[in-house]
Design a binder for these strands. Structure first.
Length: 536
RNA sequence: GGGGGCGUAGCUCAGUCGGUAGAGCAUCGGCCUUUUAAGCCGCUAGUCGUAGGUUCGAGUCCUACCGCCCUCACCA
């Protein structure tokens, strides 16, 4: 679309002869004012008019109003409108005045800008509900008071963005109101907004036209404001813990750091196939080698896998590495960043999630993997026969699985759903995390934990492996085994370890999931502004 | 990929047994200077997701396809 518009700007003639319409538009006028959508659709209207009848009719009526505004000498797409007050600010000032119902201040003025979301026309007095980023406010525009602006006000539609200035007052019914005497139309909306009461509720349309979702459903906007606060708090917390924020490549010639299928892309000038990162891990560890002792990155990662309420192909993770620490320190980091996020929201550590309440009070529960397996599956982790019996009971086809894989299948089937309250599960079977440092006293155990909340994995951490020889061996073992992990040996990463990486704790926390939990959102798509949708 | 559900006016939704496509909001035309989803009167509004099929007749039944949601599988 954008491309078409740009082409049109250069060669308007290609869109055919000028067509005179009811509203008096032609491509020349459109060109002059730079309203290309208008020029194009007007051109097409002779063919497409019948196609989408109502929508076209509604738009044409609004376009006619645009033209009428121009005839009145009013710019329907006005520019700078400064020194405005937010609705919340005006409400605060209004409250401070302590006016009675029906009263109007003689001196206190307000100036707002926002979208018209409700309109109550009573002849020569119009009540509008204006929505800005902070809330809704009523403005009243009377013919007597606005004088010359009245003809413009008669052309207002739901969805228009306007600016209003006037005295503050309280109506008979007790509603704080700006009694406008100055008025500006800032953007004429030519597409009708959704129904005023229900808003936009079709899930597909909400995702595809998120801008409509945002302006018509204030709760949605609130979720994304909270998302911003969560991420800001995580960043502040880490800065406070003397971390440095870095940015590492999203385009990677060799991908790694997780077991996941990548997206592929291509650099034309270099004629080089590249991958979108599945994790920033191997780059962040290189920074530890370089002497950056505490680093983090809030990174967009891309995994070419299934989509679900908990998985979007691109998602945001905070990944961090801390020299001379271990996974126990990382548990404190998870708790610390979550607490910081909660403090930045509302300070409430007991939060609803669906039907349950989750208590984020520190410290979170810390449970050994093997203990949980015994508790919920009733089997000892090293009792292969018992584990396989249990697997059979659960309907898991385990004949060809390695012992540790069966253990993990049983664990996932029996334990994870019970991990509702925040829990660190630690000391995983080494066989299912091959690139991980082993427990010094038990080589079958990996120094790893996962943080679970509401049965969902929130984070994953390790006491990092810094032995280059073991790392190289593990890499090779991985390569020979699974097809999708470490498709290419990352020699440079091993080289970095050969120079010497300090012992460290490393952690990744899914920020989309953290936001889901803290905002009581049931789908990851409700905390991602533009979740992936197939083109229509 | 398997299973289930959904797709009707710009939006939110009805649509009976297969028999002339409906309502509310919005729009348009009236009345209206204290309304709160304002109200009242009148009007307009449709490729029933797409393409086939069955039938005298399909929004409705059948098939395929497209899109979305849920779920399982895959997957940290």
């Amino acid at each position: 679309m954008r491309r078409r518009l740009r082409d049109a700007r250069i060669r308007p003639g290609q869109y055919g002869p000028i067509i005179e319409t009811a509203s008096g538009y032609d491509t020349e006028t459109a060109t002059k004012y730079g309203i290309w959508e208008l020029a194009l659709s007007t051109d097409n209207s002779s063919e497409k008019n019948t196609e989408k009848g109502t929508e076209n009719k509604l738009k044409q009526e609004r376009r006619a109003k645009v033209e009428k505004l121009r005839e009145l000498g009013v710019d329907p797409y006005g520019g700078r409108y400064t020194d405005i007050d937010h609705v919340t600010t005006i409400r605060g000032r209004g409250d401070a005045l302590g006016m009675d119902a029906g009263e109007m201040s003689e001196t206190e003025r307000g100036r707002v800008a926002g979208r018209v979301v409700l309109q109550r026309v009573m002849g020569n007095l119009v009540f509008l509900t204006i929505r800005d980023e902070t809330g809704d406010l009523q403005v009243a525009l009377s013919k007597k008071r606005v004088k010359d602006h009245w003809p413009t006000i008669k052309l207002l539609d739901l969805g228009d963005i306007i600016g209003v200035e006037g005295l503050l007052g309280v109506t008979k019914t007790g509603e704080l109101t700006i009694w406008g005497d100055d008025f500006r139309i800032l953007s004429k909306s030519i597409h009708p907004p959704p129904e005023k009461w229900h808003g936009l509720s079709d899930v597909e349309l909400r995702y595809r036209h998120r801008y409509v979702d945002l302006f018509s459903n204030p709760d949605v906007r609130e979720v994304f404001k909270q998302r911003s606060k969560v991420i800001a708090a995580v960043r502040d917390y880490l800065h406070g813990a003397e971390y440095i924020e870095v940015e590492t490549p999203t385009l990677q010639a060799i991908y790694g750091g997780a077991a996941a299928k990548p997206f592929t892309t291509h650099h034309n000038a270099l004629d080089l196939d590249l991958f979108l990162r599945i994790s920033p891990e191997l780059y962040l560890k290189r920074l530890l080698v370089g002497g950056m002792e505490r680093v983090f990155e809030i990174s967009r990662n891309f995994r070419n896998e299934g989509i679900s309420t908990k998985h979007n192909p691109e998602f945001t993770m905070v990944e961090l590495y801390e020299a001379y620490a271990d996974y126990n320190v990382m548990m404190e980091r998870v708790e610390g960043m979550t607490a910081a996020a909660i403090e930045n929201l509302d300070g409430n550590y007991k939060r609803p999630y669906g039907e349950t309440t989750i208590d984020y009070t520190i410290p979170w529960s810390r449970r050994k993997y093997a203990d949980l397996l015994l508790e919920y599956a009733g089997v000892a982790i090293d009792d292969d026969a018992a584990v396989r019996d249990k697997a059979t009971q659960l309907g898991i086809n385990h004949a060809k699985m390695a012992p540790a894989v069966v253990v993990n299948e049983v664990f996932e089937a029996t334990v994870e759903d019970h991990l509702i309250q925040p829990t660190f599960v630690y000391d995983y079977p080494a066989a299912i995390c091959p690139l991980t440092r082993r427990h010094p006293e038990n080589p079958d155990i990996a120094l790893r934990f996962e943080a679970f909340v509401n049965g969902m994995e929130l984070g994953n951490a390790y006491t990092e492996l810094n032995d280059p020889l073991v790392q190289e061996e593990n890499f090779k073992a991985q390569l020979s085994g699974q097809e999708e992990t470490m498709a290419i040996m990352d020699d440079d990463f091993v080289l970095a370890l050969e120079y010497g990486m300090p012992p460290a704790g490393g952690l990744g926390v899914g920020l989309d999931r953290l936001v889901m939990l803290l905002t009581n959102s049931q789908s990851i798509r409700d905390v991602i502004l533009f979740p992936l949708q197939r083109p229509r």
